[in-house]
Amino acid sequence: MTKPETKGGGARWALFAPALLFAPCAFVYAVFFIWPQASLLAISATDAAGLTLAHYQRFAGDSYYWEILGRTLGLGAAVTAITLVLGVPTAYLLARVQSRWAGFLLLLTTFPLLVSAVVRSFGWMVLFFRDGLLSHGLMALGFADKPVQTMYTMAGVIIALAQVLLPLMILTLHGVFKSIDRDLEYAAMSLGARPIVALGLVTLRLASGGIVAGSLLVFSLAISAFATPSLVGGARANVMATAIYEQAIELLDWPFAAALATILLVTVLALSLAYGALLEGRGEREAAR
């Protein structure tokens, strides 16, 4: 579509204006993101003697840390799956409902975001301990025959993180669904598609970009979350973020903490690219067919 502009002062300006508009954002990124990340990388790959891979080798050779990485990614996957399963229908309904309450309901779903992680975690404590509501509820309903402790477990962390990240998933998907013309579904139905087929072939297919975006957002926030795993997960649910904190703050081993942080960052980037390519790629093929 875009053809090279004919040469001239105005055209040149038109070419540079976007770069100029982008500059402040790029600057902030460079100073507050790229630079710290680069220095992190530098710390992780040096010791008193100079360049070294020792900190990475320490990670690679220790099954304990692989376990933590695996647990972290598992946490991200579980939280993403839960928020998708709960978020897609909710966001869809909120986007489609023709009610003056829709806006209010959407606002209501964002309330967990307004409460700090620490306060929220104390709330979960009351629910999750052996003598708490969840345990009593499960026993009263006959799902458990003895008290269940969800506090200080991975399950607790997953539930708590899914709860706080669900609004982000809903908000992302709500915007996406809102932008998809409802007549597309009606068109599919009038052409003989059952409602569920119309939803899948048209709406969800068109929302896939937003679903990818929402999933990546939730996934990366889940695996980098610190407060909730630390407060709800306690000592046993160690994830990368708490391990990094422990190395940096408790043990003052900054190089190894930096190595852990770098490994987490690289893993997230790789997974994001792969996940994005997977879903986008499917779309490209479909359109080309």
Partner: peptide, 25 residues
């Protein structure tokens, strides 16, 4: 009768063409 079982052809004001599908599709 649900919409998908009615034998209707419908042309929308916005056309409601599926943006991810070609004209033929």
């Amino acid at each position: 009768l649900p919409a998908h079982k009615r034998d209707t052809g419908l042309v929308f004001q916005s056309y409601a063409l599926f943006p991810h599908l070609s004209a033929a599709e």
